[in-house]
């Protein structure tokens, strides 16, 4: 083919400058790693100093928090609490997607529905997460449904707005093509519209995730019966600050792992057709 003629390799540059460039790059990398480490050291030093200043009863030392964390991990009950919190967060997302995605679809597809929903959804997206947490507690009291509702309320407007944007950005020429080949409207929805909005739903979920698990934990602190927030409240009532911090840190680590592994991986798989996703996967 004609394409292959283009690929003649350029003459290799002399070895010396390349080695020099590699050396510079390596030095740059070391310097960056050094700065990262220095940042961590500074953070722990500040923490140590703080617990010396406030007293370790008020602000436990890093080592104490670490030991408390090890105890929590060794006791084994963190698994049930973490999975409870994670399940509630994802249940909230599921509810938000079930409600938000159809609303977003209507908003993106039809101007009338856009007029109907737009202001309401915008306002719903502006209400502070803490208000949703309080409202959910009032509605459900001490139950697992409170955190789910809070997550759903926080996330649904974002999902709706993102899906609406996705639908509005759909490639009209693909719809014309589909109609020209006599595809049904159901086929067009499944093969053209849905794949168009998937990246937007992911963007919405990743954007919400950062807020959602904090809201979830917060709601549990006030009205949970299990989960990380519930444990934090229990330790707080026992005045075990080290354990409170340990739960918090473990939760952060856990959620970051989920963010990186579960969300990023499944997104990369679903969006493998996008050139930029492929190159980042290599």
């Amino acid at each position: 083919m004609t394409d292959q003629l283009v690929g003649a390799a350029p003459a290799a540059p002399p070895a010396d400058p390349e080695a020099g460039a590699k050396r510079t790059a390596r030095r740059r990398r070391w310097r960056l790693t050094g700065l990262v480490l220095l940042g961590w050291v500074a953070m722990f030093a500040l923490w140590e100093y703080g617990s010396w200043w406030f007293g370790s009863r008020l602000l436990p030392r890093p080592l104490e928090v670490f030991q408390a964390g090890v105890e929590i991990v060794e006791s084994g009950n963190f698994v049930t609490d973490f999975s409870a919190s994670v399940l509630k967060t994802f249940a909230g997302f599921a509810v938000a997607a079930a409600v938000g995605a159809p609303i977003g679809y209507l908003m993106g597809r039809y101007n009338y529905w856009r007029a109907f929903f737009h202001d309401g959804v915008t306002i719903a997206g502006t209400i502070p997460a803490i208000v949703y947490a309080v409202m959910s507690l009032i509605v459900f009291g001490l139950s697992n449904l409170g955190p789910i509702l809070a997550v759903a309320l926080v996330s649904a407007p974002y999902i709706a707005l993102n899906v609406a944007e996705g639908i509005r950005g759909v490639d009209k020429s693909l719809i014309t093509m589909s109609e020209a080949f006599g595809r049904s409207s159901q086929q067009i929805r499944r093969e053209v519209l849905l794949p168009t909005i998937v990246p937007f739903i992911f963007a919405a979920i990743r954007m919400c995730f950062a807020v959602a698990w904090k809201v979830e934990a917060l709601t549990e602190v006030f009205g949970g019966r299990n989960g990380v927030g519930f444990q934090i409240r229990t330790e707080y009532q026992l005045y075990d600050i080290a354990a409170v911090l340990a739960w918090m840190f473990l939760f952060i680590v856990f959620m970051l792992i989920i963010e990186r592994l579960v969300l990023a991986k499944s997104e990369a798989r679903l969006l493998a057709w996008r050139p930029q996703e492929r190159s980042s996967a290599l």
């Binding site: 020429s173 693909l174 595809r183 057709w273």
Partner: peptide, 18 residues
């Protein structure tokens, strides 16, 4: 004028879509 293929489907799936 332009190919108008579904970017999220493989070449074969594009062939089968119609």
């Amino acid at each position: 004028q332009d190919p108008r293929l579904l970017p999220w489907r493989s070449v074969m799936k594009n062939m089968m879509y119609v």
